[in-house]
Computed example of a mutant assay.
Amino acid sequence: MNILFVICSLSFRHGGPTKACLETAECLHNKGYRVEICATEDLQDIDSSLLSIFQNKGICIHVFPITLRNFFLSRYYYFSFDLVRFLSKNISRFDIVYIYSLYRFPPTISSYYARRKNIPYIIHPHGSLDPYLYKKNRHIKNIYEILFEFRNLNKAAAIHFTAIEEKNLVSPLNLKAKSFVIPYGIQLNYYIPNPNLAEKYFHELKNKKILLFFSRINFKKGLDLLIPAFAKIRKEISNLFLVLAGPDNEGYGEKVRGWIKEYRIEDQVIFTGMLLEEKKRAILSLANLFVLPSYTESFGIAVIEAMAMELAVVISNKVNIWREVEEAGAGLVVSCNVDEIAKACIKLLKNPQLAKEMGKRGRKLVENRYSLEATTQALEEEFKKIIESHKSNR
């Protein structure tokens, strides 16, 4: 089986999709499949050293330059003539094409060439169809959908959702393509708490209580709720620090700093920027509690990572795996409300034994449902079914 992944960018600043794409590709490659990835340049730097790790393992990664890079629309939509040329000449080599996201040039052009060359393709919308995001920029999206996107979706061999909740939220669109639900997975042996790493990278936070937000600094992540909630929590819990660990992609951090100043908690909030590899494990090892009060989250891979590190979690009911977390007793689920977020965090910070028990249940949940090996095997089986069905229909 020859598999092509198409993704707008492989910058780790985009969080879940980059991680999922690379690690799933590696897992499929280890099973003996030929895997290639097409991506374009990014406004942010791509970490070439991390990409080279995957390339050295035998995964072919093509990163195409953006055409007219200085033109805003070209950059924003990841427009690339080189990608067009590659797809037109090479897409027929593949048995299946897996496409990340919507409303950008790479997914649009790869869907077009897959149909033109009669190659089955799967679209993973990555939350783009969630009602909260679907409503944004609706006038532009309406045009894009009429011209391209509804055809791309309806003609797909399948649509991949990563949570039942995500699939249910999209159902009012009445898309014609079949769909399946397979969650993201992580490499479990990587996520082991390590106090030595915490000491190495964050010595200044030793013996302090840490409330950890580990995600992009982005408008949809509920930081406008978390900052006032933390101001309330700080009044009840002494020696508590809020660590905001993640990249600031769109300059949203300036708004966040404004709220921090407004609530006079500058001395208790720490921005770390994007953390990868050992530094990521270090901060997860150090934290007392993980919080993610997002307005929308198609999956929430950071939640899985936190649970794998035996951290209790406080998440909003807009994180699409909230039902699984609640049923497992791995954390507390709240609405997007300042008081609810504060009360939940205070409850677990004041009861470390309860938080510890939830953390252990979280690890068990990840082991049972979110291992990379299990999720990749499920995806592999879907690929095979789609390819066989396509051959028989053809």
Rank of each mutant, 00 (worst) to 15 (best):
F79N: 00
F299T: 00
K141G: 05
F214W: 05
D130K: 05
E254K: 15
K360A: 11
K135G: 13
F299R: 02
K117P: 02
G362P: 10
L212A: 02
I164V: 12
L372W: 08
K279R: 15
I143K: 06
A355L: 06
S9G: 09
G258V: 11
N196V: 13
A342L: 10
A306K: 01
K57H: 11
A229C: 10
L129D: 00
S52R: 15
S11N: 11
Q187N: 14
N239K: 11
L4A: 06
R234E: 13
E254G: 05
G246K: 02
F86H: 15
L197P: 08
Y100C: 06
H139M: 09
I346V: 15
G362T: 04
I210A: 03
E26K: 12
E388I: 14
R116M: 14
S298L: 09
H203A: 13
E23P: 04
I3M: 06
R264T: 06
F150I: 14
W322G: 02
L212P: 00
L311P: 03
A177Q: 08
L153I: 14
I304P: 00
V366H: 05
C60F: 13
A308H: 04
F64A: 05
G273D: 07
A114Y: 00
A355F: 06
K221R: 10
A378M: 15
Y295G: 00
A374W: 10
K279L: 12
H390C: 07
V97E: 04
I270L: 14
L212Q: 00
E326G: 08
K235Q: 15
R13K: 14
F214K: 01
A245N: 02
E250W: 10
F290V: 01
Y112K: 07
M274A: 13
P228C: 09
I140V: 13
I59D: 01
N239M: 12
E382G: 07
F72A: 11
R104Q: 13
F241N: 02
S215Y: 07
E36G: 01
R69F: 11
Y370P: 02
D42W: 09
A114F: 00
F241V: 01
E305H: 08
H160R: 09
I182R: 07
I7A: 08
L211W: 03
E250P: 01
N317L: 08
E254N: 11
K200R: 15
N288I: 03
I91T: 01
L133M: 10
A328T: 06
V319M: 06
L354I: 15
E23S: 14
L197N: 01
R104W: 10
E236I: 11
N218A: 12
K364M: 12
K19L: 11
K136D: 05
L244V: 04
L102G: 05
L348Y: 03
R93N: 13
L223W: 03
K136M: 11
G16I: 01
P228L: 10
S298K: 06
I233Y: 08
I260H: 04
P131M: 12
S335E: 15
Y190Q: 13
I301K: 03
V256P: 00
N337G: 08
E367W: 10
A177M: 08
S171C: 05
K318P: 06
K200S: 10
A342K: 07
T40W: 08
R257W: 12
L205M: 08
I159G: 01
V170H: 04
I37P: 04
L332D: 01
K384G: 04
L244I: 14
A39S: 15
F94C: 00
L348S: 06
L223F: 08
